[in-house]
């Protein structure tokens, strides 16, 4: 059995990122989209920490801490906006929240 190397982490991160991107683009429920976004941000963290460990260089770990913080802020405002959409429309189905088009 081969030891776990850099490429394993990178593949995991790429897969997670792809799942997140797919979810963000296709899910109809706004909260599910928020979760997909979170998945994308966390795959970035895996990448950063893995690179940081194997380079080795400390910046990546530091970077991932900032990413965690900013992702939290971003999702907070996302939930607030989703809530205000829900109050207006009584739905968070993204296909029904489509008044603006043309």
């Amino acid at each position: 059995m081969t030891p776990v190397g850099l490429q394993h982490y990178l593949i995991l991160a790429a897969v997670l990122f792809s799942i997140g991107l797919y979810g963000a683009l296709t899910r109809r429920n706004a909260v599910a989209v928020l979760m997909s976004l979170e998945l994308m941000f966390n795959s970035v963290n895996i990448n950063l920490v893995a690179f940081s460990h194997f380079l080795p260089d400390f910046t990546g770990v530091l970077f991932s801490i900032f990413v965690i913080t900013v992702a939290a802020a971003e999702v907070t405002i996302g939930v607030a906006i989703v809530l205000s959409v829900y109050r207006n429309r009584n739905t968070i189905d993204l296909e029904q929240v489509n008044q603006l088009q043309g």
Partner: peptide
């Protein structure tokens, strides 16, 4: 309080 602004924000 306006649905179009909330939707634009989303």
């Amino acid at each position: 309080y306006r649905s179009e602004s909330a939707e634009a924000g989303l």
